[in-house]
Simulated assay, not measured.
Amino acid sequence: MSSLINTEILPFKATAFHAGKFVDVSDADLKGKWSVVFFYPADFTFVCPTELGDLADNYAEFKKLGVEIYAVSTDTHFTHKAWHDSSETIGKIEYVMVGDPTHAISKNFEVLIEEAGIANRGTFVIDPQGKIQIIEITAGGIGRDASELLRKVKAAQYVASHPGEVCPAKWKEGDATLAPSLDLVGKI
């Protein structure tokens, strides 16, 4: 996989399930605000609902940061609606659930498992200019943590709004940052 960090997202168009309706979504919707594109293998599975439920439980915190979440699987928007309507965990989702049955979006973000026709667990944080700032890809059996994603989004937003500063390991909102300089080399 080539690094997609700091690259602009590629064009796409898809249909999603959101707020009880089918809606069109494109790369243009991700620009002008912070976005999280959260790929998962498939609806009606095992680890996936735990991750999507965790995101739903933390969605208000993402919204406070001005972040929209787009959950994407290679299932259709119809399948997303059926899952939303039949699962208590998925029923609490208020963010956008994008269908990618053509695999175009999964290919754009380089997470498609070609032989299986499903996406890897990939998380992408995209800045308002449409550039990818964070990428996390995990194996199918390893679920992600929304609170850790929130921490990373806050760090990305901080760095974007404070040129010349960086966030060290385990940085949390309000913690000290670093200003890289020759004076710091070998002193950390």
Results as ranks from 00 to 15, higher is better:
47 V>Q: 07
27 D>M: 07
103 H>F: 01
61 E>A: 15
139 A>G: 13
172 K>R: 04
67 V>Q: 00
182 L>Y: 00
152 K>A: 05
66 G>I: 10
84 H>R: 01
172 K>L: 00
63 K>H: 11
187 K>H: 11
132 I>M: 02
168 P>V: 06
11 P>Q: 01
105 I>N: 05
55 L>W: 13
155 A>T: 08
182 L>F: 06
164 G>Q: 07
116 A>P: 12
44 F>K: 09
155 A>Y: 04
162 H>E: 12
114 E>D: 15
60 A>N: 15
15 T>A: 08
168 P>R: 00
83 W>D: 08
10 L>W: 02
64 K>I: 06
66 G>H: 08
152 K>G: 00
9 I>P: 00
87 S>F: 01
169 A>N: 10
118 I>E: 05
144 R>Q: 00
36 V>R: 01
40 Y>L: 04
20 G>R: 04
185 V>H: 00
28 A>K: 14
111 V>E: 03
13 K>H: 12
117 G>C: 00
151 R>E: 11
45 T>L: 11
5 I>P: 15
105 I>Y: 03
175 D>W: 02
164 G>K: 07
2 S>H: 13
183 D>F: 14
17 F>W: 12
99 G>F: 09
182 L>N: 03
112 L>G: 07
90 I>K: 12
154 K>L: 02
112 L>H: 08
67 V>T: 01
105 I>G: 05
46 F>Q: 01
187 K>R: 14
145 D>C: 05
41 P>K: 07
71 A>V: 13
57 D>S: 10
83 W>R: 06
100 D>G: 06
53 G>L: 12
174 G>F: 13
127 D>C: 02
60 A>I: 08
14 A>D: 12
127 D>N: 10
7 T>E: 06
12 F>K: 07
97 M>H: 07
73 S>N: 09
70 Y>E: 14
124 F>N: 08
121 R>F: 14
85 D>I: 10
33 K>T: 09
86 S>Q: 13
124 F>C: 10
8 E>T: 15
5 I>F: 06
156 A>V: 13
121 R>S: 07
163 P>S: 04
188 I>W: 05
62 F>V: 15
149 L>A: 02
172 K>Q: 04
74 T>F: 03
188 I>K: 00
170 K>G: 05
23 V>D: 02
114 E>V: 14
155 A>C: 08
7 T>R: 09
56 A>D: 12
7 T>C: 05
77 H>D: 15
171 W>E: 03
20 G>T: 10
104 A>C: 02
22 F>S: 11
20 G>A: 04
53 G>K: 10
1 M>I: 09
1 M>C: 04
22 F>M: 10
